[in-house]
Design a protein around this nucleic acid. Structure first.
Lengths: 317, 317
DNA sequence: CTGTTAGCGCATTCAG
DNA sequence: CTGAATGCGCTAACAG
């Protein structure tokens, strides 16, 4: 008991006793058992957040979101437990593993923005989604404000004088597609450009490679190598990467001949574009942070929270 | 007690009782508490591996290593707890947090190959390093066999007829530098090329951007745009990415004018090179898997285990 | 086959 | 200020 007090409420101990206990702790390198603390229920050792992480393998850039959950939680004295999952729906075993940790709150995070079904078993606890949305309403979720992100970016591009955009969009079925279109339209409208006049191509899958090149080739062929577009708006940085190489290899200069705008701001990659890529940042860190705070502060706002996507101003426009 | 048996040794129960218990479990959606199980010490619920993960923020590609730890452990009924760390040496708090989970074994993993000092407090438990090495001997570690990886790749390139390589290497102080040089020399020697005759440039920092372009520019200027090298051996895919864009923008064709060889095989990126990048794969998944098995099988082989780096044959050579 | 006892490590409560 | 009793959820060991 005295040891317990030495650790949790040292001020309640006689200084001499405290010193002695501390020496013992030191020499034995004693550390209290988290399991034993948790079992008692008295949350003196901090509560626990359980995190489901989807798509970590395929989209590692987004791990920032997990790091921010971990950081934010720890700053508030909470513990975090991350469970990587590779498929949805979650298997019963996976859910049980999560629940067996007795989390005080659950974060469901997807590295790739998606909509998904939340198993009822999870709704018994405080739950928040990060970078994903629930098919059913009544669940708090934090997602990138793609509408505004795309709007801001295109608006800035337009302000710089570009007038003839070509868009290579994410697949139409993706959650972001519609939002981005709205943002684009809003910016276009403000500049007095009719949406119908802008060239658009929707990728059919997430694989950007072949189609991006094919579309660019088509556009360039039509105009004998001189692009009729002066701004290439890409659904993500991966598309932009492919486009860059293709454009560069055709002797086109970026941004002199054509400006390029990405989306995502892939950590450690976007800076390596030649020239460095102007893009819109997916706010992974913020997503994780806010979702975590939602849990910690026991907020009751079971709706969609839009997190701003800052425009990252580099040299491709 | 009967519930405990229903879960752990159902065959010891009367089928009727079992059914009843299971119904109760179902209707209450009861899941045993991991903490309570762990506290008892009897490892009926599986042991626990604690993982320190360093550099996760800056090098997210390597998360595969963490996923394989998680998978491998789970396949063997072990639990995993990952603790991301952002700096070394580890702070006492971080170490305590790890220890408070009472792990049965510890994996120290670095996303970026490095050498580091292991705090004595950790050596009290079974310990294994993944993608990093200890400054002191006597610690088991699993690291990429960069010597052989570089050797294999250059050998294959030489077999394809390339004869005048230019190497843009990792910084000289990096752990991989020497190994790669040895592999390179071995391949060169086999082909009868003297190491002195090959052009080499060592990056001064991990930031590839400026120096890579400057070096390429220098080389091309010397020879009036016609490269005297027919093979560009890059210390990593990021260097290759920068080089690609520069070469392409100078009207050079890959691999017709110059072949490019990367290193790392960055997931989701190397495929997007135009043309797709031939590179050497850093075996993150294997690193994690073997390190984990080392712990699970309680191996006693406290030395460096070299894990092969497969050559990934794409279209840049 | 099922139930009882006991104890894992900790912290709340109450006694000294 | 310090200690003893108690119970958290679970299961090994033993009793019925």
């Amino acid at each position: 008991m005295t040891v317990s007090r030495a650790i949790n409420t040292p001020e309640k101990l006689n200084p001499e006793t405290l010193t002695k206990v501390r020496q013992a702790i030191e020499s034995l390198s004693y550390v209290p058992s988290l399991s034993a603390r948790k079992i008692r229920g008295g949350h003196s050792s901090g509560k626990t957040i359980g995190v489901f992480a989807l798509d970590t393998a395929t989209t590692p850039f987004a791990v920032e979101m997990l790091l921010s959950v971990e950081r934010t939680a720890r700053e508030h004295g909470w513990n975090v437990f991350i469970l990587n999952v590779f498929e949805i729906p979650l298997t019963p075993q996976t859910i049980e593993l999560m629940l067996s940790h007795r989390p005080d709150g659950i974060v469901f995070s997807a590295m790739q923005l998606r909509e998904l079904e939340i198993p009822p078993a999870l709704r018994s606890k405080p739950l928040v989604l990060s970078n994903c949305m629930s098919t059913e309403p009544g669940v708090a979720c934090y997602v990138p404000d793609d509408e505004d992100g795309q709007y801001q970016a295109v608006r800035q591009a337009l302000q710089r004088g570009y007038r003839r955009p070509l868009c290579i969009n994410l697949p139409r079925h993706s959650l972001a597609w519609k939002l981005r279109q709205q943002g684009l339209s809003r910016a276009l409208a403000e500049a007095g450009i009719t949406p119908e006049s802008v060239r658009q191509y929707d990728l059919s899958t997430d694989d950007a490679y072949g189609e991006t090149i094919a579309e660019l080739e088509r556009q360039l062929r039509e105009s004998h190598g001189k692009p009729v577009f002066d701004l290439l708006v890409c659904g993500n940085d991966r598309i932009a990467l492919v486009a860059y190489q293709y454009l560069l290899s055709r002797g086109l200069r970026i941004p002199a001949d054509v400006a390029v705008l990405g989306y995502d701001n892939m950590v450690g990659i976007a800076e390596l574009f030649y020239p460095p890529l102007s893009t819109v940042q997916l706010p992974y860190y913020e997503l994780g942070r806010r979702a975590t705070q939602h849990l910690i502060e026991e907020r009751d706002e079971p709706f969609t929270h839009w997190v701003p996507c800052p425009v990252v101003d580099r040299q491709s426009w």
